[in-house]
Design a protein around this nucleic acid. Sequence first.
DNA 1: GTGAAAGCGCTAACAA
DNA 2: TTGTTAGCGCTTTCAC
Lengths: 339, 339
Amino acid sequence: MSNHSVTIKDIARILGISKSTVSRALSEHTDVNAKTREKVLALATKLRYQPNSIALHLKQQRTNTIGVIIPETVNTFFSGAVSGIQKIATLAGFQVVVCQSNECYTTEKDNLHSLIATRVDGLLISVSRETENTDHFDTLLQNNIPVVFFDRICEKLDTSQVFTDNYQIAFEATQHLIDQGCRRIATIAGPSHLYTSCKRFEGYKDALMKNNIEFNPDYLIYADFKQESIERFTRRLINLKESPDAIFAINDMTAIEMMHVIKKNGLRIPQDIAVLGFNNDKIGQFVEPSLTTIDMPAQDMGEAAAELLLFHIKNPNQRPEKRLINSRLIVRDSTRLRP
Amino acid sequence: MSNHSVTIKDIARILGISKSTVSRALSEHTDVNAKTREKVLALATKLRYQPNSIALHLKQQRTNTIGVIIPETVNTFFSGAVSGIQKIATLAGFQVVVCQSNECYTTEKDNLHSLIATRVDGLLISVSRETENTDHFDTLLQNNIPVVFFDRICEKLDTSQVFTDNYQIAFEATQHLIDQGCRRIATIAGPSHLYTSCKRFEGYKDALMKNNIEFNPDYLIYADFKQESIERFTRRLINLKESPDAIFAINDMTAIEMMHVIKKNGLRIPQDIAVLGFNNDKIGQFVEPSLTTIDMPAQDMGEAAAELLLFHIKNPNQRPEKRLINSRLIVRDSTRLRP
DNA sequence: GTGAAAGCGCTAACAA
DNA sequence: TTGTTAGCGCTTTCAC
């Protein structure tokens, strides 16, 4: 039985004035007799009056809440992004409801519908690995619900988006490997319908092409991370007749696990195989050799996405915006072959 | 301009019946003429009617939302716990609002107040590292707002709590080090007002005592993780006249960083110094040597805490419950000295 | 400067 | 079975 919370009605009754006067006194806006206001304010604090936000929401038809759909929290990139989102949201007096799709298309749909049902004022979305069809997002556009996609965006949709230069940085990373003397560069690719995977793969291929290195399909691993273990496909790579001299992995955890397998098999890093990660997890500095990686500005992306969303919430009929956030290559020992 | 959403009023008007009949038809509960219901349902789906949950909340004085306050998301333990919470909440039709205290006392207070202000139906809390004074939580008890503390609990408060056997597992881990032949066991302790730190330290000390090993204050490091770097205090340990032969670290990240420093200084693990972590982060398997650690059932704790909270939300005047979830020691190479 | 009344969308007690 | 009415807590227009 929650403490029978005090309402403006109670205050009005006790003070012998009307609800509306109390409301006005509390809202500080309209003119109301200084003495009346004082009395109201005094009683309000005495009674620990707390405005009922639900009633406000109903009145204003807004919830001061933004919904977030991400693949999974237990991924430092996304938890970093969420931190950025929360920071901006809190500053603006908004709550944040976070849902995880667990990389699953149907869960993502469910998340979306439940967030819409609870009437969030806007959404921040990074799509799941499984999401090919994006029809479920049409509701947002149709109903004019503000939405900003970030990182794993949907290019086709005419909404605001915040993303990194996946193509550019993958190109740069591949070029770095080539500059170190690597020629047989393996990579792990996510599903081609996923924005980030697709762009990164293009950057990788174009870097090869620019350096007149033929793309070898044997060096491409499709990671669905479901059945096949990282150990298994790392072994497969190592055992190729012409085994790769570098691996451009999809994230740091995968890179580190691969390094582990490579070392177990008696190969040296980077001399026999150079390894390059993605994400700049803190741990990359402490493994041996330290891991070359790409720093993803997770927090910045979250902040940018949240700012953009708040802008759209406050200014309903603005055109969508695209915001690019730069990532950067961090070279460490796992790829250092030349001085 | 959000799409002028349809209400029961619209349906009623179009069908020429009353709002209440529409409400009843939709709620499937009370008896209403089969044909009327059909018509209502048909029109509702045609118009894509979505009940306005805000109105419902106002009516029912509940929000179907639970608030969560954790130190930080970018910590695999807490993000794991949040996953467990979300799983249970979703199943029960509840939303989850997560706030981070960033290990900061005042932020925790702010989080608490903003969650109370938005009228969450209950709270799940793991206190910040800075939180010594717990008076701010009294509001919850006074206003009868259901709350469950988890992991970093407040023992004094008469509320439900979910925790692991910190004392027991620290004892066991220390005993394991002793069984490996270690005698000079260093440890890193968090603030003594923090439940987990305190219990773990007691377990550590009691294990020493039971084995007639005197506790050496030189081997105790107070980690506030603010000014002093892990590198610096690892060095300090190594350079002691009688340097430790084992370190029981506070979490896996710290353990791994310390391992890095130890190896850089030419010492072998575990021969010169054994290292034991806490958390069972995935990465522990892939570092060299692989890291002995303690598996914390993060997801399980989150689930248990959420279940308990939902129970209290549904059954207002039940007594608080304490729930213990077991953790377990995972022995790997970083402490393996004897067969 | 203040009060009365309507209304946000919904449910539920009471009448018919 | 259905309609009327009141009310959840708040803001806001319109009188006075």
